[in-house]
Amino acid sequence: MNGLNVAKVVFGAAIMFFLLAPLIAILPLSFTDSVFLNYPIPAYSTRWFNELVTADVWRRSIVNSLIIGSGTTALATVLGTLGALGLRNHASFWSLSFIRTAFLLPMVVPAVVLGVGMQLMFARYNLTNSYLGVIIAHTVLAVPFVVINVLSVLQAIDPRLEQAAASLGAHPVTVLARVTLPLALPGIISGAVFAFATSLDEVVLTLFVAGPNQRTLARQMFSSIRENISPAIAAAAFVFIVGTIFVALILILSRKSLARR
C-alpha cells in the first residue's frame, strides 16, 4: 500500500468516526439503570424502553409520528410523482425549469420562515392543531425529495418504450400504468422512504403548526430535553435509529427484488 492509499483509508476512517461517534456515545445510555443521562453506566436495564411504551406522552408521540409519517409519505409520494411526470422531458422550456426550481425551494428556505408562514396561513383555514395541518406541513418539505428521486429514474427511461407501448395499442393512461410507473417504481420507493424519514425527524415546522395532540416523537424528544433530561431520550433515539435502519433495509431489499425481475 502506498502513501496515498494510507491517506485515503485514514481520511475515510476519520469521517466515519465523525459521523458515528455521537450515535455510539448516546445509544448505550438507553440501557442504563440510572435516572441520569451520563457515564459510567451503573447497571443495565430496559426500564427506559418500558417508560417509552407505558408513559402516555411517549406512547402517544410514537403513534403520532407513525400517523403523520404515513400520511406525509402517501401525500408527498403521489404529489411528487405527479410533479415529476409533469416536469419530465421539458428541460429546455424556461418556464418549466423555473417550476422545477420552485419545487425544490422548500429544501432551501429556512424551516423557521416556512413555519411562520404556515402558522399564519393555517390559522386562516383552521388547520392549526390538526393532523391534516401537520401532514400538509411535512408534505411541503418531503415533496422535493420525491420529485428529485422520481425525476431521475424517469429521465433514465427510454421514451421509445412508451412509444412502443402506444404503437402496440396502449392508451396513454395504460402506458403510464403498465410501462412508465412500473419502471419508475425504484425511484418512487426511495422517494417515499425519504418522505417518511423527513417527516419522522422534522421538529421546526411541527413546533409551529402542531398542537399538543399532534406531538411527534421528534417533537417530544425536543421538549423533554428542555424540561427534564432523562435516558428515555436515549431510548427514543434508539427506537428511531432502529426504525430508520429497518426502512433502509426495506428500500435495499425492494431495489434488489426489482432489479432481479
Binding site: 412502443a164 403498465r178 412500473p182
Partner: peptide, 30 residues
C-alpha cells in the same frame, strides 16, 4: 390519429422491449 389507434407494428433500433415483463408478456402486450 394518436399512435395507439393506428394499428401499426413498430420495430425500434434498440428493440424497446419492456424490461419488467417476460418475453411472453412482451409479445402478449398488444
Amino acid at each position: 390519429l394518436p399512435p395507439h389507434k393506428r394499428n401499426m407494428g413498430v420495430v425500434f433500433q434498440n428493440y424497446a422491449l419492456f424490461p419488467h415483463m417476460s418475453v411472453a408478456e412482451n409479445v402478449g402486450f398488444p
